[in-house]
Write a protein that binds this DNA or RNA. Structure first.
Length: 546
RNA sequence: GCCGCCUUAGCUCAGUUGGUUAGAGCGCCUGAUUGUGGAUCAGGAGGUCCCUGGUUCGAGCCCAGGAGGUGGUACCA
């Protein structure tokens, strides 16, 4: 016989950056998507499910001067030479859908969308190449009310999925204010927008890193550059000291205001008298840094204060002043609905993705502390973000269409809730009906059918029934709450044994072998009472409805 | 992309100046118990020491290159 060449076995592995999701991970995500969608829907947004594949052209991801798409997208070339790609977010597809169907869609068009997106990037801890997003956007409204509404909705959504008020904060900034600051700092010339574009990029990225690098790190990046611990040098924006100071006074606005509140003896020279009078009155009644202790009136005041402060910086810039006015509008609209700075706060250090945003930008951050396996403190970054992008649809239609929206990173949010202990990845298994007599399988199937009809998750043990112990081990591994036993004995007497596995585990914690062998967690009931007893146990463990 | 660290059993990790047959804990399997999971006890299986080459009488250990992982940094529509 000819030797058949052994084919090398394929290695069973998930490609790097991807992962498999099991049991509770899948159901919990689906549940979370439902909760989020329900809030979006309640706010008047319509569902939209668009194609997962887009033309690279529609995504706008062709590299400049090259006929190849941007790395970072999963793309491939069709035989007719067209490039297709997996979507990398849900916003670009929305712009395409809106442009394509605009004659049939209401204006404004409000839609929500959810699903996986793909990015061909270096994966990191908690960063995958496929992940779920859940977006809501309003296309065709330039009103700040649209932006304020998105922020309010984001707040509601986070609380709906189980993030307690005070465990998160939504921070708002405005790209126009940022541009105003750039103008004042001399890195943006309104008459020549292209000039200093490179420097502005560095400045924006530097601001984005305030969290990680601190004020001094940002200062270095704004100036000559910064060397990190590994000796790697990052070139800075090369700003002069005065310029750096302007940007920093902006970015650190939140802290500066707090400082000023703390020391009434050192009022800020730049701020006007009106402001001083107000802050004098509130600084006597609040603990600085403890936002929760502010009364509602004063909370509202915090955002006003920030606006006043920002205006003092960008006073000489037209777009800057416009941006501040927009922020004020949003803050007022939110305050009128009762969303104060304990939930939504104006924070000049928010920059966000830099790309297509043209006005207000928002970011939701979780504020509770979590610890990793090694006990180190870790911070959860942002779990949601968004903003106004008034130019995205224009790429298709040539007409400016204002739009604003938000995107929630569902997987990160889930991970956060798990780490917080709000939900456990452990899934409760089904009730397991054990098989004592192989030829009475029909009896066992009948039991399981009764349980299922009563709405109880249940299954018959389908493995090799020879070793009875293994059946209970199986139930244990499945994290089953209850096991059912009906041997010849019980059958003859018309009863069944019902084993409360959760109670059993609890008893075993500190029971002797003898006590355990007594089987205090096992109950004998009449065959007819099977379903009732099982439900009773489930209810006792808070696992089912009565 | 750049810099550092790491790679030994399913998992977490020991492993002496380079020396015979490479270890532990946990997990897994079997039995004590063919009708009782998680406890206890006894036993057992499980290894390309990341790969390739080099030095050496001899390499898990030393050297070179490569791969993979990880941390930092950069980029991220």
């Amino acid at each position: 016989m000819a030797k058949t060449r052994k084919q090398p076995r394929p290695k069973a592995e998930t490609p790097k950056g991807f992962r498999d999701y099991f049991g509770a991970e899948v159901t919990q995500r689906a549940e979370m998507l439902n909760v989020i969608a329900a809030v979006y829907h309640r706010y008047g947004f319509d569902a939209l499910e668009s194609s997962a594949v887009e033309t690279v052209e529609a995504l706008g991801k062709f590299l400049p001067d090259v006929d190849r798409p941007n790395e970072g997208v999963f793309a491939w070339q069709e035989e007719d030479a067209a490039w297709l790609a997996l979507r990398y977010d849900l916003t670009a597809p929305l712009a395409r859908v809106y442009a394509q169907h605009r004659n049939d869609l209401p204006i404004p068009y409000r839609r929500y969308a959810m699903g996986p997106v793909w990015r061909n990037e270096k994966p990191g801890p908690g960063r995958f190449r496929q992940f779920y997003q859940c977006d809501a956007d309003t296309v065709g409204s330039a009103s700040m009310a649209a932006d304020a509404e998105i922020c309010a909705m984001l707040s509601d959504t986070l609380e709906a999925v189980g993030i307690a008020r005070g465990d998160y904060v939504i921070r708002i900034n405005n790209r126009k204010v940022l541009n105003g600051v750039m103008e004042v700092a001399g890195v943006l010339d309104p008459s020549d927008p292209e000039k200093f574009a490179h420097e502005r990029g560095i400045v924006l990225r530097a601001i984005d890193k305030l969290d990680r690098l601190g004020p001094e790190g940002v200062r270095a990046l704004l100036g000559k550059g910064r060397e990190d611990e590994s000796g790697d040098f990052t070139k800075g924006a090369g700003l002069g000291e005065d310029q750096v100071e302007v940007v920093l006074s902006f970015v650190l606005g939140k802290e500066r205001i707090a400082e000023q509140l703390a020391s009434i003896a050192e009022p800020a020279g730049k701020l006007n008298a009106d402001w001083e009078a107000k802050y004098r009155s509130i600084s006597e009644t609040i603990e600085v840094g403890d936002r929760k202790s502010l009364s509602v009136d004063n909370q509202e005041f915090t955002n006003r204060l920030t606006c006043t402060y920002l205006r003092s910086i960008v006073d000489n810039s037209v777009v800057g002043a416009e941006g501040v006015a927009e922020l004020e509008q949003i803050a007022d609209l939110l305050a009128a609905q009762g969303y104060g700075p304990d939930r939504i706060v104006i924070d000049p250090s928010v920059v966000r993705g830099l790309g297509y945003y043209t006005g207000p930008v928002y970011e939701a951050e979780l504020t509770f502390e979590i610890f990793d396996d090694k006990g180190r403190k870790r911070q959860f970054g942002s779990v949601a973000g968004g903003g106004r992008y008034d130019d995205l649809v224009k790429r298709f239609t040539g007409q400016a269409v204002p739009a604003t929206g938000v995107s929630i990173g569902v997987d990160r949010l889930l991970a956060a809730l798990r780490e917080k202990g709000r939900i456990t990845a452990q899934e409760i298994g089904p009730v397991v009906v054990t098989v004592m007599d192989r030829d009475r399988m029909a009896d066992y199937q009948a039991m399981v059918a009764e349980l299922r009809n009563a709405g109880v998750r249940a299954e018959v043990y389908l493995g090799n029934p020879k070793n009875f112990g293994n059946q209970l081990k199986y139930a244990d591994r499945r994290n089953s709450p209850v096991a059912i036993i009906e041997g010849g004995d019980e059958k003859a007497r018309g009863v069944v044994q019902i084993k409360d596995l959760i109670l059993g585990a609890q008893i075993a914690q500190n029971a002797t072998l003898e006590e355990w062998k007594e089987r205090p967690s096992q109950f004998e009931v009449a065959r007819g009472d099977l379903v009732a007893k099982v439900r009773e146990i489930l209810v006792a463990h808070d696992l089912g409805q009565a």
